[in-house]
Design a protein around this nucleic acid. Structure first.
Length: 570
RNA sequence: GCAGCCGUGGUAUAGUCUGGUUAUUACUCUGGCCUUCCAAGCCAGCAACCCGGGUCCGAAUCCCGGCGGCUGCACCA
């Protein structure tokens, strides 16, 4: 692990570059160079393979510009802000709640801005730098704001997370999945947050890539069919208890974590397992990872429970790279309220439930004479009673022979007006608002950690020891010298491998040693060298990046050999 | 956003205090030579004073503003 060397190589070789460099750059943005872009794509492809192919989730792609209503409902318009104020003399900008707290020693977090303005006036709070007058307080919202359409009266925001795009499609998605829970939907794409002062390179970007899965499930049933397979997997956990009481991290199996209530559900544990498996497959070892539960005050406005996967770095300490949250029904309920669309599913019971209940049979023949024009009202009243009220009514009539209905006037209901019947009713299911378990991956951070932990220093060389399935370039082809027929053979080999779908670099530049060194450095797993013997013996040298061992392979068998090596199934 | 330090080819740097010839050096990179494998050698070449303004006969160098980087503070649902 060596941040400094790694970032140098990554800049030099074309993984990560600062954005808008020729205009002196803008912080909080980053460019992926040729190798970085490929690496990122490979990581995202691998992610798709795990969640879409492996778990049967389905992918959607929504717009990145969202109308205000969506983010109002999600809570981002109101909660994704900081109250700010500015000194009218020196221009210094402050967090309003902080400067107030400092001045009067009272916690005013989540007070409305008007209230904060009042407090500033009443307590005569001034600029802590120059003593100048403070401006009115405004909200600094971390979302990028824009307008939709020419009139400019439709406010839009760049989405601050990809998740909302899935929630707002819930009706169509639940129909797509046949109305059955659980189901999983994923979205990969850009999200935007206008950070006040981003630093730390690719760790905190204003525009970043997320890969999120939203798993909709029955709140009564957070089990997972594959939990059985992973219940003995061990997890290194830093729970709320561990953090609050400054205990050692605990290492427990999934089963124990469930039994002792450390993690609340099978589904959540299974997602922790999947997240770790993914990271392992792209070359981030378990030792570099830990699971940390959010503390109550730290939790986002929507979360019931949240576990971060954190990765160890030498430069930034433990960095959050994945958040796995139980969002409860927060989002679907909020969107139901805001949009007036029912975002729920009908859950049929395994077996219809037989519910015993008492129903009222009004004796309509007696109604007319007794209630006259009030008859329909009495009928409606009786029809709208719930089980509890029917019981009370029956009890009253059994005991006292009458029941007073209080409508616009009191009406006396007698035993002769109605009869009761005990029936058994079949209830087949109920409507519920699903809960959501959300694994949310920060792709840029994960890519950084992949670079950091793949970067290997030995006595001979420093290089990216990528897992071969994510290496941006898979094979290097080198004629030993820049001469025919070596170049001709080399070029043919390159073309053949490219036809098979391999990402191949062909180069004749510089000495063979230099080319090997560069090829290793950018993490190409295999190099193929054509020499003067190749022309006569029809074979070439294959060299492995990690061991630097070489072997001769017949040119005819080359495609087969590399396909086996990369285990490519297309 | 604030404070301190900093910004010279792709990389690492000399020169800045004390303004003055064609901006130093090494590596890298590109082309060539090389009949045999791990950054070799030889020849040739590309390539820089963060941006804008000011002072001055003259600015990489001094002054002001901006942008960016690092560190600290603040911020990071």
């Amino acid at each position: 692990m060596n941040h400094e060397k790694m970032t140098n190589v990554s800049r030099k070789r074309g993984f990560l570059w600062p954005s808008y460099e020729i205009y002196s750059g803008v912080s909080g943005f980053t460019d992926y160079g040729p190798l970085g872009a490929s690496l990122k794509n490979n990581i995202m492809q691998k992610w798709r393979k795990q969640y879409i192919v492996g778990e049967g989730f389905r992918e959607i792609e929504g717009p990145t510009v969202m109308p205000k209503e969506v983010l109002k409902a999600s809570g981002h318009v109101d909660n994704f802000t900081d109250p700010m104020c500015k000194c009218e003399d020196c221009g210094e900008v402050f967090r309003a709640d902080h400067i107030i707290e400092e001045a009067i020693g009272k916690d005013v977090e989540s007070f409305p801005n008007e209230k904060l303005d009042e407090i500033v006036l009443e307590n005569n709070i001034s600029c802590s730098e120059c003593g100048g007058k403070l401006s009115k307080i405004w909200d600094y919202n971390l979302m990028f704001k824009t307008q939709i359409g020419a009139k400019g009266n439709k406010i839009g925001y760049m989405r601050p997370e990809t998740a909302q795009g899935i929630f707002i499609l819930f009706k169509r998605l639940s129909r797509y999945f046949g109305g059955r829970l659980p189901f999983g939907v994923v979205q990969l794409g850009k999200a935007y947050r206008n950070e006040i002062s981003p630093r730390q390179g690719v760790i905190r970007l204003r525009e970043f890539t997320q890969a999120e899965a939203e798993i909709f499930l029955n709140p009564q049933d957070k089990t997972h069919p594959k939990f059985e397979n992973i219940k003995d997997e061990k997890f290194r956990l830093s729970s709320q208890d561990v953090q609050k009481n400054e205990k050692e991290e605990i290492v427990v199996t999934g089963q124990v974590a469930l039994d002792e209530g450390i993690i609340s559900s099978e589904m959540l544990i299974y997602q922790l397992y999947l997240a770790r498996k993914f990271l392992y497959d792209i070359g981030i070892p378990d030792e570099a990872l830990r699971f940390r539960q959010h503390l109550p005050g730290e939790m986002a406005h929507y979360a019931l429970d949240c576990w971060d996967v954190e990765c160890k770095t030498d430069q930034y300490g433990w960095v959050e790279i994945i958040g796995i949250a139980d969002r409860g029904d927060y989002d679907l309920s909020s969107h139901t309220k805001e949009s007036n669309e029912d975002l729920n599913v009908y859950i049929p019971y395994d077996e219809p439930k037989l519910v015993k209940k008492t129903v009222i049979k009004p004796n309509m023949a007696k109604f007319g004479p007794s209630f006259k024009q009030d008859s329909p009202k009495v009928k409606t009243f009786l029809e709208n009673l719930n089980d509890e009220e029917i019981k009370d009514l029956k009890a009253a009539i059994d005991k006292e022979g009458k029941y007073i209905i209080k409508l616009d006037k009191d009406l006396e209901l007698l035993a002769e007006h109605l009869s009761f019947e005990e029936i058994e009713e079949e209830v087949k299911g109920e409507k519920i608002t699903p809960h959501v378990i959300e694994p949310s991956f920060g792709i840029d951070r994960i890519l950084y950690c992949t670079l950091l932990h793949s970067f290997t220093e030995t006595d001979e060389k420093d290089y990216f020891k990528f897992e071969k399935t994510i290496a941006p370039i898979e094979i290097s082809v080198f004629p030993l010298l820049n001469k025919t027929p070596l170049t001709k053979i080399g070029f043919e080999i390159t073309e053949n491998l490219r036809k098979e779908g391999f990402n191949v670099d062909y180069s004749t530049a510089g000495s063979i040693g230099k080319r090997y060194a560069k090829s290793d450095e950018i993490g190409v797993p295999l190099a193929i060298t054509v020499d003067f013997d190749s022309n006569e013996t029809d074979d070439v040298t294959v060299r492995y990046r990690d061991s630097e061992k070489q072997k001769r392979i017949k040119i005819d068998e080359l495609n087969n050999f590399v396909e086996n090596y990369f285990n490519k199934k297309d």
